[in-house]
Design a protein around this nucleic acid. Structure first.
Lengths: 215, 215
DNA sequence: CATGTTATACCAACTAGTCGGTATAAATAA
DNA sequence: TTATTTATACCGACTAGTTGGTATAACATG
């Protein structure tokens, strides 16, 4: 067998991801992708038959990685607590933690794609939808279990509430970039966590440490 | 005065906005902007000295329009109720209403820009930040007034809570595009409204009409 | 006429994608 | 062992078309 092509392939995808997060993949030229990957045009078109195929493969890889993250994170919180509400709260905490002190400018590939419809094929859209639903369904299920055991003081639509997790997440990326303050992401996820807790417990809990950096 | 150039200018901006919402302004060519506006290159470069200037002017116009909307909406809710909490809840209702039965694929110019940094000049960023803060500050102020009069059952960071309005909003656009279901926007804003109400009132209220369309 | 507005023709740089060819390395065979 | 084959992986010059931007002339209107 010749040398391993998957290395080159991943270098191309990595380069494309970086460009997608900054200038947007639609606006990035293949020459830039190629330069970033440190390869040549020939190599690129050996691995991908077009720029659109690159876009699709990139989002598919993203969805796979996100799925792995989901499996890992849910397994962890389910092993940390048996209480479904606690599991949701822990998941929020875990997620917020991931974005605390994140050095680079965070963002979401899906959000970037859905404002650049050249990249937004039906295949890509469906892959993203599936991935979103995976998280949403899990949270919704847990919230419903929690509600069965101990109904919240105020009725709430648990489907919408679960959906809100992703909404806040995606929105926080936009805010972080607009305010130029990545800390917003962890802050908003935390705020969501607190709202859920308040809704289900309805009683004050030990005061949370105040967020320090609020320029 | 010779004939009115502001008409052409606005046609250009309208065309650019439409392209920005679909394929992204960075990926859109000037020829497409020009074709959409039904004019020629000469006319374009008479009104804008470059594509980047177009991008900046477009986002500035967006911010102006959003500011007008803010002034109008807050004035309306402040005339409808004297209770700050009610005002916030009404504002959410008003906002959700705006996106109910929205025919075209909704989206936010700011979100699109912040994933395409060719367009994301510091000037543009600051204009967007200012506009975001206008809404956030107003909501935060109202929530603090409301909390003073009748503190929520559970302590909550009202700054984060106000910030969450925009986060949910921006996130809902992404979800709407990913799920291909514009109804999500009104739904999420409504869910936010309900959370705020639950937090401050803490008692059940007349059951809301169930959302009907949930494919 | 003078000023503001629009059209046509054009350019150099860049675009996605092609193509003939080369390098690598394992498998086969003498 | 060594020569040959085979398939994968990669290179870089090339093309046809597009890009943002310019030059210049024509048109409209007061």
């Amino acid at each position: 067998m010749p040398r391993d092509g998957t290395i080159t392939r991943n270098r191309i995808l990595d380069s494309a991801l970086e460009l997608a997060m900054s200038k947007g993949l639609a606006a990035a030229s293949l020459d830039q992708v190629i330069a970033g990957a440190g390869i040549t045009k020939g190599a690129f078109f050996y691995h991908f038959k077009s720029k659109n195929e690159l876009a699709l493969e990139l989002v598919k890889r993203f969805a796979r990685q996100d799925h792995d993250l989901f499996v890992d994170a849910t397994a962890r919180v389910e092993s940390l607590s048996r209480d479904p509400l606690q599991q949701v709260l822990l998941l929020c905490g875990l997620t917020a933690e991931m974005f605390k002190d994140s050095p680079d400018n965070p963002g979401c590939l899906i959000a970037s794609y859905c404002y650049q419809e050249d990249l937004w094929s039906e295949d890509a859209r469906r892959a993203c939808e599936t991935q979103f639903r995976e998280w949403g369904d899990w949270i919704e299920g847990k919230l419903k279990q929690a509600a069965k055991a101990h109904p919240p003081a105020v009725p709430a639509d648990l489907h919408e509430l679960a959906e809100m997790f992703q909404a806040i997440f995606e929105g926080a990326f936009v805010l972080a970039r607009t305010y130029n303050d990545p800390a917003i992401i962890a802050r908003q996820v935390h705020a969501y966590r607190d709202l859920i807790e308040a809704l289900f417990k309805g009683t004050p809990r030990p005061a949370r440490r105040k967020a320090k950096s609020r320029k």
